[in-house]
Write a protein that binds this DNA or RNA. Structure first.
Lengths: 136, 136
DNA sequence: GCTTGTCCTGACGTCGGCGTCAACGTCTAA
DNA sequence: TTAGACGTTGACGCCGACGTCAGGACAAGC
């Protein structure tokens, strides 16, 4: 399988595949006599693993243990301790991030409520204001 | 007040202040004869407003209605309808983002539990593994 | 006159994950 | 034989919010 076919089957661009290779994530199994990259069917699983994790918000570097686990012949990317450690770290990161977002959200909600409770200012920006201009 | 003093009092860099100006957020009140920027005391409030919102995850552009509201002489940055609309939009964005993160977190947690339930693979990455190598 | 301190503008660097283009080689079907 | 579809490498562009450097101007104090 050449890069174009792998790209199409995996639903990514050839540029993406070359980028993965440049990061050492997905080296081509071989090169043809013409220098073209040649991939085995397993490459499809590797790309799918990367994409799945990226969808969960993983950076490329965080997918490495999973990919290497698969390449080592293990049945799943998360069969290896390194990969599971990334799972745990990511879950912790998400928890921390969500806590921050919750805090920000609560703060903003309170600010909005406070602002809305105040009398509307006169001619204060926004074309959809229904308060008459003051003074004059 | 010149840029250095404003920067120090506001707790930002001079580069940041010049950047804000380049974005049209914080034009200097005036220029001295030597071309130096001159700010009034109100600039300090504008910068504080920007930083506060940035801490909540606002992009610079999203702080514009608040800053303009202040510059228009209103008592608070969120006195104006435009600014409050941004509040609402941001809250909605946060809600959406948190929902995504929750979903990802739940998914990862389930994946981790599933992976942990499986028998540990043999010599599968990770130096801290306590399972003996298989085969041999 | 020299140093020190503050200011100016302009421009490139950073980070991640590619998109996009250039300029070229290679393979295949008509 | 030639067009066109595929492949190659290299390099710049993008986004956001600045950091950092280059090169220069101006004022005060010694």
């Amino acid at each position: 399988m050449r890069i174009g076919e792998l790209a199409e089957r995996a639903g990514v661009s050839t540029r993406t595949l070359r980028y993965y290779e440049s990061r050492g994530l997905l080296p081509a199994a071989d090169r043809g006599a013409n220098g073209h990259r040649v991939y085995g069917d397993d490459a499809l699983r590797l790309v799918a693993q990367i994409r799945t994790l990226q969808d969960f918000g993983f950076e490329l570097e965080d997918t490495r243990p999973f990919v290497e686990c698969l390449r080592a012949g293990h049945p799943a990317g998360d069969s290896c301790p390194d990969a599971r450690a990334v799972y745990r770290r990511k879950i912790a990161e998400l928890d921390g991030l969500m806590a921050e977002l919750r805090s920000a959200r609560d703060h903003l909600t309170a600010q909005l409520a406070r602002a809305e409770a105040l009398p509307p200012p006169c001619g204060a920006g926004g074309s959809d204001t229904d308060v008459p201009l003051c003074g004059g």
